Simulated scan of single mutants.
Amino acid sequence: MSALSIRPVRSKADRKAFVDFAWEVYRDDPAWVPPLKSEVHALLDPNHNPWFGHGRAELFLAERDGRVVGRISAQVDDLVQDRMPATGQWGFFDAHDGDTAAALIRAAEDWLRVQGMKHALGPISLSIWDEPGLLIEGFVETPLVMMGHHRPEYRQWIETAGYEKAKDLYTFALDIRIDMIPVIDRLIKSGEKNPRIRIRDVDKSRFDEEAALVLDMLNDAWSDNWGFVPLTEAEIAYAGKKLKPIIVGDLVKIVEYDGDPAAFMITIPDVNEMIADLNGTLFPFGWAKLLWRLRKVTTRRVRVPLMGVRKKFHNSRLASQFAFMLIEFTRRVCVSKYGVYFGEFGWVLEDNQGMMSIAQLPGAGVNHTYRIYTKKL
């Protein structure tokens, strides 16, 4: 076998090769959905992604005979250090073979050591808010928007490199036509009769203000979760801008308790269905196709990527009541107004007992498992 070289990305052509490599790896995989290349480039660009305000990254290409055969990122997030000192991460991991995979992981680890890191987590691309974890179960079904897809052999290659499980993340699929079981239905109806509880739709005419409110609740609700990294003000604005085109007003709901925002749930159409035939590019006709498809919910599937209840309500009956009311109110709209019958909930940390119990709704089951690995450097 020809000699393998690992080198950092330095030029615009290198960056293009880094992004484009996914198309070579997954071109024959029917479950892979080509992401929009412009979105991937923006994610990796310090001039666009505010993550780089508190993080730094190095991208690597693996080459053999002048041909790209693998890629990986290595990154250090200063905000991660507050909760996991001396812990770096790697992601965007793809390779044609085990030898290349091993060399790429070593290159990422070496870079992390130079940065003073003593532990590595991966794959995470680039942050816990982007695409965390390696797909280890659920390879046949196409992932929904904002979730990753990987080759089955990656698991062995990563574990051979000395990595062990840190956490598993689950997504749950469910037929949302199935009614709630009586005990949950009674809880929902009780909440509907409670004058202190109000469920409202997000107001898209005040989108920036509403996005900031929701993401503030998210930072509070998720603050005790493993791997949590708070979104900065710049990231909140950036996330709001990215989400706005796919937000449907009556699918994003806020719970107010005594007039104060207490919980939220974001449900979005499966954008992967909208972009699957675009092959990653919006030119020359992709823009028109996507804008047309974004006019209304026409996807077969919807996903709940984010849900949260303010921390002061955790471990109370109200937390469950808020959550089930949000789910039920959204379910009604999906079925009666949009004719959507398939929903996905997650990701959910394996040891987040509160969310795990909520996610296991009638007719629900785990459809994808993602694993984040750890290793002492």
Rank of each mutant, 00 (worst) to 15 (best):
1 M>E: 11
5 S>K: 14
7 R>I: 14
14 D>K: 09
16 K>Q: 12
20 D>K: 05
23 W>H: 14
29 D>P: 03
36 L>A: 04
37 K>C: 07
38 S>G: 10
44 L>I: 14
45 D>Q: 02
46 P>C: 00
47 N>M: 08
47 N>K: 07
53 G>T: 00
53 G>S: 07
53 G>L: 14
54 H>P: 02
54 H>Y: 06
61 L>K: 10
61 L>G: 10
63 E>W: 03
66 G>N: 02
69 V>T: 15
77 D>H: 02
78 D>I: 04
84 M>P: 00
87 T>E: 05
97 D>Q: 01
99 D>Q: 09
100 T>H: 01
100 T>P: 08
100 T>W: 02
102 A>C: 01
105 I>D: 08
108 A>D: 10
110 D>F: 06
112 L>D: 03
113 R>G: 09
115 Q>I: 02
117 M>I: 08
120 A>S: 15
122 G>E: 07
124 I>M: 14
124 I>H: 04
131 E>S: 03
134 L>V: 07
136 I>P: 00
137 E>Y: 14
143 P>A: 13
143 P>E: 01
143 P>I: 14
145 V>I: 15
153 E>V: 09
156 Q>W: 10
156 Q>M: 03
158 I>A: 11
158 I>L: 10
162 G>A: 12
163 Y>M: 04
165 K>L: 10
169 L>W: 10
169 L>K: 11
169 L>G: 00
170 Y>A: 01
172 F>N: 01
178 I>N: 00
180 M>E: 08
185 D>Y: 07
187 L>Y: 11
188 I>K: 06
188 I>D: 06
192 E>Q: 15
194 N>D: 15
198 R>L: 05
198 R>C: 00
200 R>C: 13
209 E>L: 09
209 E>T: 12
213 L>P: 01
218 L>H: 01
225 N>E: 09
226 W>Q: 07
226 W>T: 11
231 L>K: 00
232 T>W: 06
233 E>G: 05
238 Y>S: 04
239 A>F: 13
239 A>G: 03
241 K>M: 13
246 I>S: 10
247 I>P: 03
252 V>A: 15
255 V>S: 01
258 D>I: 00
259 G>I: 11
259 G>S: 03
260 D>M: 13
263 A>C: 02
267 T>Q: 06
271 V>W: 10
271 V>P: 02
271 V>L: 15
272 N>V: 05
276 A>C: 06
277 D>G: 03
279 N>H: 15
284 P>L: 15
285 F>M: 13
288 A>E: 07
293 R>T: 08
294 L>G: 00
296 K>I: 00
297 V>D: 00
299 T>D: 00
299 T>C: 01
300 R>L: 07
302 V>W: 10
302 V>Y: 05
306 L>G: 05
306 L>N: 12
306 L>S: 11
308 G>A: 06
309 V>W: 04
310 R>S: 02
310 R>Q: 12
310 R>Y: 07
313 F>Q: 01
315 N>S: 14
318 L>G: 08
327 I>F: 15
328 E>S: 12
330 T>Y: 02
333 V>I: 11
334 C>E: 11
338 Y>H: 10
340 V>S: 12
346 G>Y: 13
348 V>D: 10
349 L>C: 11
349 L>Y: 12
353 Q>K: 13
353 Q>E: 15
354 G>D: 04
355 M>I: 15
369 T>P: 02
371 R>S: 05
372 I>V: 14
375 K>N: 09
376 K>V: 12
